[in-house]
Simulated scan of single mutants.
Amino acid sequence: MNAPSKVGPPISTEVYLNNRTDQDFGRLDKIDWCGTSKPPVNVPSQQTRYFMQLADSFLGCSEGGLVFVVNQDIKWVVAWSNTLDDNKVYTEITKKETIEWDKIKEKLEKSTSNVEVTDEGYKSTVDIDPYSVKPNVNAKLEDAPAA
C-alpha cells in the first residue's frame, strides 16, 4: 500500500519547543531556508514556546532551523522540512563552535519524520506529521536518564 499523498502544497509549520530541563535556553541562531518565521528568543525551564513558519507559496515549502544554547557551551539544534515530499525533522546536541547550516540541511534531507538523540547529558526528541500540509513540529529537550 502506498503512503498517503498530500492534498496540496505546504501552508505552514507550527513549531512547539518543549524545555523539560532545569536550564533556561536562549536562541543563538535561526535559518529560514523556505518560508518565514519569528521564533522565540528564549524558552524558560519547564515551559513550552510555540511559533508558526508560513510556507513560501511560490516555492511550496516551509523549511527552517533553530539553535539554542542550553548550558553555556551546549547547543540544541532543531530543523524541519515541510515540502510536497515527505515532511522531515532533524536534531542534534553539540558543543561545536559553529553551526554549519549546509551540513544540517543535508542531514535533514536524509532524515525521517521522527528523530531522537541523546548526547552531552540531554535527550532531544523531535517529530512531525509526515504528510500534513500544516504539520506540528514537536521538539522536546530533557535531561538524559542516568546510564
Results as ranks from 00 to 15, higher is better:
Gln46Asn: 10
Asn82Leu: 04
Ala79Glu: 00
Asn71Ser: 08
Ile74Ala: 09
Tyr90Asp: 00
Asp102Lys: 10
Thr13Ser: 13
Gln23Lys: 10
Asp29Lys: 12
Glu142Met: 07
Asn87Phe: 03
Ile104Trp: 04
Ala144His: 01
Leu66Lys: 03
Gly8Asp: 10
Arg49Gly: 10
Tyr131Pro: 00
Val43Thr: 10
Trp33Cys: 00
Trp80His: 03
Val69Phe: 06
Tyr16Asp: 11
Arg27Glu: 07
Thr13Ala: 14
Ala79Trp: 02
Asn136Lys: 07
Thr91Ile: 02
Lys140His: 00
Thr118Ala: 15
Ser113Gly: 14
Asp129Gln: 07
Gln46Met: 11
Leu28Asp: 10
Gln47Thr: 15
Cys61Leu: 07
Asn71Val: 01
Thr48Glu: 09
Pro40Cys: 09
Ser132Asp: 13
Asp73Thr: 14
Asp22Leu: 04
Glu92Cys: 11
Asn18Phe: 07
Ser113Asn: 14
Asn42Leu: 10
Val7Arg: 13
Phe25Trp: 15
Ser132Lys: 06
Ser113Glu: 02
Val89Gln: 00
Cys34Val: 07
Leu54Arg: 06
Gly35Asn: 02
Lys123Thr: 15
Thr125Trp: 03
Lys110Trp: 05
Asn19Met: 05
Leu108Ser: 05
Ser57Asn: 14
Glu109Cys: 00
Ser111Ala: 14
Val117Gln: 08
Leu54Glu: 10
Ser45Met: 12
Ala55Leu: 01
Pro130Gln: 11
Val43Asn: 07
Pro39Val: 05
Trp80Lys: 03
Lys96Gly: 08
Thr83His: 06
Leu84Pro: 00
Thr36Phe: 08
Glu97His: 12
Lys96His: 12
Glu106Thr: 13
Thr21Ile: 09
Ser12Ile: 03
Ala144Ser: 08
Thr36Asp: 10
Ile99Ala: 06
Asp119Pro: 04
Leu108Trp: 08
Asp85Arg: 04
Gly60Ser: 07
Gln23Phe: 11
Asp143Leu: 13
Pro40Trp: 07
Arg27Lys: 13
Ile104Lys: 02
Asp119Thr: 05
Tyr90Glu: 03
Leu141Trp: 02
Phe68Met: 08
Val69Cys: 09
Pro40Glu: 01
Asp56Gln: 07
Leu141Thr: 02
Asn18Thr: 13
Ile99Thr: 14
Asn87Val: 09
Ala147His: 05
Trp101Ala: 00
Gln47Glu: 15
Lys110Glu: 15
Lys75Pro: 00
Leu84Ser: 10
Asp73Ser: 11
Lys96Gln: 14
Asp129Arg: 02
Leu59Lys: 12
Asp143Glu: 14
Lys123Ile: 14
Leu84Tyr: 04
Asp56His: 06
Val126Gly: 06
Ala139Ile: 04
Ile104Val: 14
Ser81Val: 04
Leu28Gln: 12
Asn87Met: 05
Ser62Ile: 00
Ser113Met: 09
Asp24Asn: 15
Val67Met: 04
Gly35Leu: 10
Val117Ile: 14
Ile99Gln: 07
Gln47Asp: 12
Pro40His: 06
Asp85Gly: 09
Ser132Met: 06
Asp85Lys: 03
Thr21Asp: 01
Asp129Val: 01
Lys38Glu: 14
Ala55Gly: 05
Asn114Trp: 01
Ser57His: 07
Glu14Asn: 13
Arg49Asp: 11
Asp143Ala: 11
Gln53His: 03
Lys134His: 05
Glu100Gln: 14
Asp24Gln: 06
Lys6Gln: 15
